[in-house]
Write a protein that binds this DNA or RNA. Structure first.
Length: 446
RNA sequence: GGCCCCGUGGUGUAACGGUUAGCACGGCAGGUUUUCAACCUGUAAGCAGGAGUUCAACUCUCCUCGGGGCUACCA
């Protein structure tokens, strides 16, 4: 089995495209087949090295593997020309200068549901001759059979007047030459399939098996796009999602896995993936669910691994201790720094938190007592810190938060942080006492 | 306009010609708790609508409605 993922080089890898790539990968992996990557760059304008680079980067980030082959469709221009000539010689394609305007005029005359048929000319673009009789039937592994009557189909343009080929032609020729057995792609290509089928037929070749995946929509039911927040793999990465979580989530969106379970390894995914089980209905990309899943993956990562990823994500080093105490509280890598950055960069400036917590009655005394108790500590570790701080609570006869919150604001600057004992223990004696002192110095005493 | 696809709670989905229509996210209400999370318990919420086939339909057929895609000398 040979499958292919053929993105258009328009820039970032769209989330829907990522899922298509993933499904192809799972299919190939589960069936011991090969995944071929090919950039659909017959439109040279849109194909920039940067765009291609972005796509490869995203696929690599997702940890998908593919077979090295001719990566660019444009490298095959010679073969395309040759195939074109074959079709012209056999009368299956003809030159026509007809424009979109002419096609509309034709339909005015013959009816909207009548496909355009041109007359052969000496100059112009190349159109494929579609027979009026019969129909092309798309045999789709997911959707069953869909019939497209030839009368409704326009003779498609397969090459520009300058000889360069167009997508629907090139894709068929390339799939044929690459020996692709299964074409798995977005449902937006379903209507294009009869044109490609016609190309296979004109070339006297057997088409591959097709499977059209349901499209991914945004929360508003419209096709997923920029205004829905993250729309590309790159954005997901930058938002702090883990590739394994993204992969798992994307796989869940329409693959028809057992919903009693939702976490799967790549091997399990590949093992269970069945094209026949893929849903026909479009799915809405729900970032909240991805967050949830990501949080689970994050919490199960060994601390050393989590640290490595946080360091790569933030560009900082020495995050090990902080990773350990913050990991229970984050769902994405991006949430780490707001939560634990104070350990490295000093307390966050949050006047509102300061006012509310340290402005409260008894806060200054509580903080002072905590300071004194901590200063007496001989062994500075989490258990000892907890012991003495709880002692302060007991001695003062107040609620725990009346002691813990002032300490938290003193060291973190804000009311949200990892656990107070762990934070203090990690910060160290010197830094903790210094931060408390500096806080005390500007705290009003009630 | 033409051609085509799709339709189970807000979201992702499971099941089956006969079930109290299940699970998860999210919501709500409690619990735990030093904050925020996490975690635990409980709870609300669905077969788009209408015909037909059948002893029986969410499941099969048709229609309507709704959503989507394609309709380029784009991919």
């Amino acid at each position: 089995m040979r499958v292919r993922f053929a993105p258009s080089p328009t820039g970032a890898l769209h989330i829907g495209g990522a899922r298509t790539a993933l499904y192809n990968w799972l299919l190939a992996r589960g069936q011991r087949g090969t995944l071929v990557l090919r950039i659909e760059d017959t439109d040279r304008e849109r194909s920039t090295p940067e765009n291609v680079e972005q796509i490869l980067e995203a696929l690599t980030w997702l940890e998908l593997e593919w077979d090295e082959g001719p990566l660019f469709q444009s490298e095959r221009a010679e073969r395309h020309t040759e195939a074109l000539e074959t079709l012209v010689e056999s009368g299956k394609a003809y030159r026509s200068s007809a424009t979109g305007e002419d096609v509309r005029a034709y339909k005015q005359e013959h009816g909207d549901d009548r496909g355009f048929r041109g007359k052969p000319e000496a100059e112009g673009a190349l159109r494929l001759r579609v027979p009026d009789e019969g129909s092309s039937i798309v045999h789709d592994v997911i959707r069953g059979e869909t019939e497209f009557k030839h009368v409704h189909l326009d003779d498609p343009v397969i090459a520009r007047a300058d000889g360069s080929v167009l997508y629907n032609f090139a894709v068929a020729v390339d799939d044929l030459d690459a020996g692709i057995t299964h074409v798995v792609r977005g449902a937006d290509h379903l209507s294009n399939t009869p044109k490609q089928l016609l190309v296979f037929e004109a070339l006297g070749a057997q088409p591959p098996e097709y499977a059209h995946l349901p499209l991914l929509h945004g929360p508003d039911g419209k096709k997923l796009s920029k205004r829905h927040g993250a729309a590309s793999v790159q954005e997901l990465r930058d938002a702090g999602y883990l590739p394994e979580a993204v992969r798992n989530y994307l796989a869940l969106l329409g693959a028809g896995f057992d919903p009693e379970r939702e976490r799967f390894t790549s091997d399990e995914l590949a093992e269970r993936f069945r094209l026949e089980r893929v849903s026909k209905a479009p799915a809405v990309f729900d970032e909240r669910k991805l967050r949830h899943l990501n949080g689970e993956y994050l919490r199960e990562l060994p601390v050393e691994e989590l640290t490595r990823r946080l360091e790569a994500f933030t560009g900082r080093i020495g995050l090990g201790g902080a990773a350990g105490i913050a990991r229970e509280k984050m769902q994405t890598l991006a949430e780490f720094w707001p939560l634990a950055g104070f350990i490295f960069d000093g307390p966050t400036d949050d006047p509102e938190a300061f006012e509310r917590v340290l402005g409260a009655e008894g806060a200054a005394q509580a903080l002072g007592d905590a300071r004194a108790a901590l200063a007496r500590l001989e062994l500075w570790d989490e258990a000892s810190v907890e012991r003495v701080l709880r002692d302060v609570v007991e001695t003062r006869g107040v609620k725990p938060k009346e002691v813990f919150q002032p300490v938290r604001v003193a060291i973190a600057g804000r009311t949200i942080s990892p656990g107070i004992f762990e934070s203090v223990a990690l910060l160290g004696r010197e830094e903790t006492l210094a931060r408390i002192d500096s806080t005390l110095a500007r705290t009003p005493v009630h």
